[in-house]
Nucleic acid binder design. Sequence first.
DNA 1: TAGCTGATTGACT
DNA 2: GTCAATCAGCTAA
Length: 190
Amino acid sequence: MPLPRRFYARPARAVARDLLGCVLVSRRGRTLAAGRIVETEAYLGPEDRASHAAFRPGSRDLFYGAGGVAYVYLNYGMHCCLNAIAGRRGRPGCVLIRALEPVLGLRAMARRRGVASDSPRLASGPGNLTRALGITLRDNRADLTAGRLTIEPPDAPRDFRIAAGPRVGITRARTLRLRFWIAGNPHVSR
DNA sequence: TAGCTGATTGACT
DNA sequence: GTCAATCAGCTAA
Protein backbone atom coordinates (compact mmCIF):
# COMPACT_ATOMS: atom_id res chain seq x y z
CA MET A 1 0.00 0.00 0.00
CA PRO A 2 1.34 3.46 -0.89
CA LEU A 3 1.93 6.07 1.77
CA PRO A 4 -1.41 7.72 2.69
CA ARG A 5 -2.27 11.31 1.88
CA ARG A 6 -1.79 12.37 5.52
CA PHE A 7 1.89 11.39 5.31
CA TYR A 8 2.39 14.38 3.01
CA ALA A 9 0.22 16.78 5.00
CA ARG A 10 3.16 17.88 7.14
CA PRO A 11 5.98 20.40 6.78
CA ALA A 12 8.28 19.66 3.83
CA ARG A 13 11.30 19.21 6.09
CA ALA A 14 9.66 16.33 8.00
CA VAL A 15 8.36 14.72 4.83
CA ALA A 16 11.82 14.92 3.24
CA ARG A 17 13.41 13.11 6.19
CA ASP A 18 10.74 10.42 6.41
CA LEU A 19 10.85 9.75 2.67
CA LEU A 20 14.37 8.37 3.04
CA GLY A 21 14.21 4.58 2.83
CA CYS A 22 10.78 4.60 1.17
CA VAL A 23 10.38 2.99 -2.22
CA LEU A 24 9.38 4.89 -5.35
CA VAL A 25 7.44 2.70 -7.78
CA SER A 26 6.96 3.59 -11.43
CA ARG A 27 4.65 1.56 -13.67
CA ARG A 28 5.07 2.15 -17.39
CA GLY A 29 2.72 -0.20 -19.18
CA ARG A 30 4.03 -3.66 -18.46
CA THR A 31 7.33 -2.36 -17.15
CA LEU A 32 7.75 -1.97 -13.41
CA ALA A 33 10.68 -0.11 -11.92
CA ALA A 34 11.33 0.80 -8.31
CA GLY A 35 14.05 2.26 -6.14
CA ARG A 36 14.71 3.09 -2.52
CA ILE A 37 14.89 6.82 -1.88
CA VAL A 38 18.35 7.70 -0.55
CA GLU A 39 18.52 11.47 -1.05
CA THR A 40 15.94 14.28 -0.82
CA GLU A 41 15.73 18.04 -0.53
CA ALA A 42 12.97 20.07 1.12
CA TYR A 43 11.62 23.23 -0.50
CA LEU A 44 9.38 25.54 1.45
CA GLY A 45 6.94 28.26 0.46
CA PRO A 46 7.49 31.80 -0.84
CA GLU A 47 9.84 32.53 2.06
CA ASP A 48 12.27 30.02 0.54
CA ARG A 49 13.66 31.85 -2.45
CA ALA A 50 14.92 28.65 -4.05
CA SER A 51 11.44 27.12 -4.07
CA HIS A 52 9.41 27.01 -7.24
CA ALA A 53 6.47 28.06 -5.08
CA ALA A 54 8.27 31.40 -4.90
CA PHE A 55 9.03 31.98 -8.56
CA ARG A 56 7.01 29.64 -10.75
CA PRO A 57 3.50 31.07 -10.61
CA GLY A 58 2.40 28.58 -13.27
CA SER A 59 2.68 25.88 -10.65
CA ARG A 60 1.10 27.86 -7.85
CA ASP A 61 -2.17 25.97 -7.62
CA LEU A 62 -0.21 22.74 -7.44
CA PHE A 63 2.00 23.91 -4.58
CA TYR A 64 -0.88 25.37 -2.64
CA GLY A 65 -3.13 22.34 -3.14
CA ALA A 66 -3.23 19.14 -1.09
CA GLY A 67 -0.04 17.11 -0.76
CA GLY A 68 0.76 13.68 -2.11
CA VAL A 69 0.91 14.81 -5.73
CA ALA A 70 3.86 14.69 -8.12
CA TYR A 71 5.36 17.90 -9.43
CA VAL A 72 7.53 17.21 -12.47
CA TYR A 73 9.24 20.05 -14.27
CA LEU A 74 11.82 20.51 -16.94
CA ASN A 75 14.94 22.44 -16.22
CA TYR A 76 17.98 23.39 -18.23
CA GLY A 77 15.85 22.46 -21.19
CA MET A 78 16.57 18.76 -20.97
CA HIS A 79 16.20 17.23 -17.54
CA CYS A 80 13.03 16.40 -15.66
CA CYS A 81 13.02 16.58 -11.89
CA LEU A 82 10.56 14.78 -9.64
CA ASN A 83 9.07 16.37 -6.55
CA ALA A 84 6.41 15.32 -4.07
CA ILE A 85 4.10 18.10 -2.96
CA ALA A 86 4.03 18.34 0.84
CA GLY A 87 2.04 20.32 3.36
CA ARG A 88 -1.65 21.03 3.74
CA ARG A 89 -3.81 23.01 1.35
CA GLY A 90 -2.68 26.63 1.53
CA ARG A 91 0.69 25.68 3.04
CA PRO A 92 3.02 25.19 0.08
CA GLY A 93 6.05 22.96 0.21
CA CYS A 94 7.63 20.16 -1.72
CA VAL A 95 10.34 17.54 -1.60
CA LEU A 96 12.77 17.02 -4.46
CA ILE A 97 13.73 13.38 -4.84
CA ARG A 98 17.39 13.43 -5.83
CA ALA A 99 18.62 9.85 -5.82
CA LEU A 100 17.45 6.24 -5.68
CA GLU A 101 18.99 2.89 -4.97
CA PRO A 102 17.46 0.68 -7.68
CA VAL A 103 15.66 -2.39 -6.35
CA LEU A 104 13.38 -3.51 -9.19
CA GLY A 105 13.44 -3.29 -12.97
CA LEU A 106 17.17 -2.70 -13.17
CA ARG A 107 17.32 -3.81 -16.79
CA ALA A 108 14.64 -1.34 -17.86
CA MET A 109 16.45 1.45 -16.02
CA ALA A 110 19.79 0.56 -17.58
CA ARG A 111 18.20 0.50 -21.03
CA ARG A 112 16.65 3.94 -20.54
CA ARG A 113 19.86 5.35 -19.08
CA GLY A 114 22.32 3.67 -21.42
CA VAL A 115 24.61 2.51 -18.64
CA ALA A 116 25.35 -0.82 -16.94
CA SER A 117 22.58 -2.06 -14.65
CA ASP A 118 24.97 -2.33 -11.71
CA SER A 119 26.23 1.24 -12.04
CA PRO A 120 25.88 3.15 -8.77
CA ARG A 121 24.85 6.15 -10.88
CA LEU A 122 21.85 4.39 -12.42
CA ALA A 123 19.37 6.67 -10.64
CA SER A 124 21.74 8.99 -8.82
CA GLY A 125 20.84 12.63 -9.42
CA PRO A 126 17.43 14.21 -10.13
CA GLY A 127 17.82 14.05 -13.91
CA ASN A 128 19.18 10.51 -13.96
CA LEU A 129 16.45 9.32 -11.65
CA THR A 130 13.58 10.52 -13.83
CA ARG A 131 15.21 9.14 -16.94
CA ALA A 132 15.84 5.74 -15.31
CA LEU A 133 12.19 5.46 -14.26
CA GLY A 134 10.81 6.86 -17.50
CA ILE A 135 9.21 9.82 -15.73
CA THR A 136 8.27 12.73 -18.00
CA LEU A 137 6.28 15.95 -17.85
CA ARG A 138 3.17 13.85 -18.38
CA ASP A 139 3.59 12.64 -14.81
CA ASN A 140 3.14 16.18 -13.52
CA ARG A 141 0.20 16.25 -11.08
CA ALA A 142 0.11 12.44 -10.85
CA ASP A 143 -1.40 11.16 -7.61
CA LEU A 144 1.33 9.54 -5.50
CA THR A 145 -1.16 7.59 -3.37
CA ALA A 146 -2.53 5.53 -6.27
CA GLY A 147 -1.81 4.88 -9.92
CA ARG A 148 1.30 4.52 -12.02
CA LEU A 149 3.61 6.53 -9.81
CA THR A 150 3.50 5.78 -6.08
CA ILE A 151 5.70 5.80 -3.00
CA GLU A 152 5.61 2.82 -0.64
CA PRO A 153 6.73 2.83 3.00
CA PRO A 154 10.02 1.10 3.88
CA ASP A 155 9.83 -2.68 3.72
CA ALA A 156 12.28 -3.05 6.60
CA PRO A 157 12.83 -1.09 9.82
CA ARG A 158 15.17 1.88 9.71
CA ASP A 159 18.75 0.69 9.78
CA PHE A 160 20.54 3.79 8.56
CA ARG A 161 21.72 7.15 9.79
CA ILE A 162 20.31 10.34 8.25
CA ALA A 163 22.76 13.05 7.31
CA ALA A 164 21.74 16.67 6.64
CA GLY A 165 23.48 19.50 4.85
CA PRO A 166 23.02 22.49 2.56
CA ARG A 167 21.19 22.01 -0.71
CA VAL A 168 23.23 21.76 -3.86
CA GLY A 169 22.94 23.05 -7.40
CA ILE A 170 20.85 26.10 -6.56
CA THR A 171 21.65 29.77 -6.78
CA ARG A 172 19.44 31.19 -4.02
CA ALA A 173 19.01 30.49 -0.31
CA ARG A 174 22.05 28.24 -0.22
CA THR A 175 22.55 28.33 3.51
CA LEU A 176 19.54 26.34 4.70
CA ARG A 177 20.26 22.75 5.68
CA LEU A 178 17.34 21.16 3.88
CA ARG A 179 19.10 18.34 2.06
CA PHE A 180 18.88 14.88 3.60
CA TRP A 181 20.52 11.63 2.63
CA ILE A 182 21.29 8.16 3.94
CA ALA A 183 24.79 8.36 5.37
CA GLY A 184 27.30 6.20 3.58
CA ASN A 185 24.95 5.04 0.81
CA PRO A 186 26.87 4.77 -2.49
CA HIS A 187 23.85 5.80 -4.56
CA VAL A 188 23.72 9.32 -3.15
CA SER A 189 24.71 11.87 -5.81
CA ARG A 190 27.84 13.90 -5.46
C1' DT B 1 8.04 38.28 -30.50
C1' DA B 2 12.56 38.15 -28.54
C1' DG B 3 15.34 37.42 -24.76
C1' DC B 4 16.40 35.49 -20.37
C1' DT B 5 16.87 32.04 -16.49
C1' DG B 6 17.41 27.66 -14.24
C1' DA B 7 16.49 22.65 -8.13
C1' DT B 8 21.56 19.32 -14.42
C1' DT B 9 24.49 16.24 -16.74
C1' DG B 10 28.30 14.54 -19.31
C1' DA B 11 32.26 15.51 -21.96
C1' DC B 12 36.29 17.81 -22.04
C1' DT B 13 40.87 20.59 -20.42
C1' DG C 1 38.07 23.36 -13.15
C1' DT C 2 34.89 24.95 -17.77
C1' DC C 3 31.20 24.50 -21.15
C1' DA C 4 27.33 23.34 -24.23
C1' DA C 5 22.88 21.16 -24.87
C1' DT C 6 18.00 22.83 -24.94
C1' DC C 7 12.99 24.47 -23.41
C1' DA C 8 8.84 26.10 -20.45
C1' DG C 9 7.34 30.05 -18.70
C1' DC C 10 8.32 34.38 -17.37
C1' DT C 11 9.49 39.39 -18.60
C1' DA C 12 9.67 43.59 -21.45
C1' DA C 13 8.13 45.95 -25.34
